[in-house]
Nucleic acid binder design. Structure first.
Lengths: 174, 174
DNA sequence: TTATAATGTTGGTAGTAACAATGAAATCGG
DNA sequence: CCGATTTCATTGTTACTACCAACATTATAA
């Protein structure tokens, strides 16, 4: 179906229905790949500022967005193993960014809650990112900004649906 | 909403010049964060299909885009330490996706070149991604597709400039 | 009550990535 | 030309991440 060394097949697949789709998709693919690539590398060196890692940052963010969570909920939210999530919490708890509290309704479970320091760190990181994004948007027209946000939001939603549907566990790698 | 309860200064900074920028930037920030987040998690489990990791995939991609490279060039391209890049090559060479060849002009250096298998794997991965992106774009108008690609390309370029300029080595983490 | 399931923790293992040190080859200065 | 320095790639070491499996504790079902 998709041995692409040649591009005849993909053309055949959709050319009749939508002649520009292939070219548009190619352009989109190149642009998005580059964007993802840049942000991914940036993540390693910049998002995780102040003294936390990328995963820890996502954990903080999840706790701000969703409020106090149990470890299982957090692990699900972050697509992590619960043991990994537990260790992520260890690190954040050591730095006083959150606390584990036993759930009064289910004494097996814990409620993970941010401390003021954790909330403050998250706010600082968010503010930094927002500032960056503001600079990126500054010289665009307001209606273009709106269009971008809408489109990116839509992309995110569609991507999310697609990825959650498929879920083949690839990448054991080595 | 969100974390930004704290910062009046960002409002002061630009409110007079551009009244919608703050709100637009906020929306953009949320949309983009979500997109990045989704792609980042997907990376871990899906891009790296077939039998290679994310980093290995980027290495393949760099070799396709830039042709044969020395290890140093590749490490720079991937923002990796030389030693890490060398081990990435180990893995890919073991799977016969590339070969190391001594550079005839500098016998300290190696030229890393893809094998036919490596090229074919890259083509297959690209084709998969392209197919996904095609599906994402399929129900958008052609002019909207163009606008998206242009905007994303621009975002990538601006982000790239910004990130390469700053380069504070954060994230020692733990 | 006992059996089963769920929650979170810990141990073990593998992979990733950085820093440091090394060997080998090229380059520079005298 | 020769020694010192620099550059290129690799190996050793260390730290972190993430997965699986096993476990103690608690909840729920039979």
């Amino acid at each position: 179906m998709k041995s692409v060394a040649t591009n005849n097949q993909t053309q055949l697949a959709t050319a009749s229905a939508d002649p520009t789709l292939d070219r548009d998709a190619m352009q989109f693919h190149e642009a998005l790949s580059e964007l993802i690539r840049i942000y991914q590398f940036r993540d390693r060196k910049r998002i995780c500022c102040h003294d936390i890692s990328v995963t820890q940052c996502y954990a903080l963010d999840a706790l701000v967005r969703r409020g106090a969570l149990t470890l299982n909920e957090l692990a699900t939210e972050l697509y992590l193993d619960k043991s990994t999530a537990s260790r992520v919490l260890d690190a954040l708890e050591r730095k006083d960014y959150l606390v584990r509290e036993t759930d009064p309704e289910d004494r097996r479970a814990i409620q993970v809650a941010l401390t003021p320091q954790g909330r403050e760190l998250h706010a600082r990181i968010e503010a930094d990112l927002l500032e960056e994004h503001k600079r990126l948007l500054a010289d665009l027209d307001p209606e273009v900004r709106q269009a971008i946000s809408n489109l990116i939001g839509r992309l995110a939603r569609e991507a999310s649906e697609r990825f959650s549907r498929v879920d083949g566990s690839c990448c054991k790698a080595q």
